[in-house]
Design a protein around this nucleic acid. Structure first.
Lengths: 143, 143
DNA sequence: ATCTTAAACGGAAAACATTTCCATTTAAGA
DNA sequence: TCTTAAATGGAAATGTTTTCCGTTTAAGAT
């Protein structure tokens, strides 16, 4: 796994302490993070971190293919690390029971195909369901 | 096509002038409308219409299956008339060239199926593409 | 080791969409 | 009519995201 600095530098961005910390945050996190999540955690290290800076960095990192921007779950934006930098779009599913969010790797749509008379350029999806873990709990009557 | 009043009454809601106007608005509109769209048009008839009332009514009508709430295109919510009241979810596609939004009737996912280890309960999608009309214009060299 | 400069930053404030609160009005059944 | 729960408008709050601007800083050049 490449060090945060290399990832940032490879994207043509300046390596700053804040940026290093943000990328490290996502590398350690198992779930997508909201700008607020990121800001709260940054404040532990940088007491003067500002929310606008967080937004700017998340968007910049997303533009460069390091992060993926997840929209559509409520009105809060989330970001996740791209498995490989620049590795296309992602779809996510949230468990209505426990709130965990997972990435979905397969997708039934691909850009370029025809959908409803349109030529598809991009698509986003949001799934809600019950994760395997919660499914088995429910089956055990723990609901 | 049932009159607005009947639709509203059938949903167990009071028939008010504002509500009648809102349903009529959607019945006449070819495209999904934002709360702001609706508010602006209501102001033509009801000079004292308030945005909170619009939001309330749109949500109420959506809960009762008369309207469908479309999220995920930017951070602006839209609503469209359900073809048949209560007729499940819808997906929409926006043309990046001309901005028109159409409903997509077929869908490759259905709730209940397994997706990524989850049992799917609901899903939303947003598609971007080029509509047939803009596709043909492009092909004619009108770029 | 400095210099220089564009990029990055923090902070305040603005911009929006959406929601809450509350007092008033109104539709609909009695 | 009367009564009442539902619906409404307006002001204000909430929460997210963006803009603006002056200051700081990383990074390549000197």
């Amino acid at each position: 796994m490449p060090h945060s600095d290399e990832v940032i530098r490879a994207a043509g961005l300046k390596v700053t302490p804040v940026r290093r910390a943000i990328v490290a945050l996502f590398a350690e996190s198992l779930r997508p993070l909201t700008p607020r999540d990121v800001h709260v955690r940054l404040l532990e290290q940088f007491s003067r971190s500002g929310l606008p800076g967080v937004y700017r960095n998340l968007e910049t990192l997303a533009e460069r293919g390091i992060l993926f921007r997840i929209a559509g779950f409520g009105q809060v934006r989330r970001y996740a690390l791209c498995p490989k930098p620049g590795s296309g779009h992602q779809h996510h599913i949230i468990c209505v029971a426990c709130g965990r969010i997972d990435r979905i790797d397969e997708c039934l749509y691909h850009d370029g195909m025809m959908v409803g008379g349109y030529r598809l350029l991009s698509h986003t999806m949001q799934f809600e369901g019950v994760c395997a873990s919660c499914l088995s709990e429910t089956n055990n009557g723990q609901s």
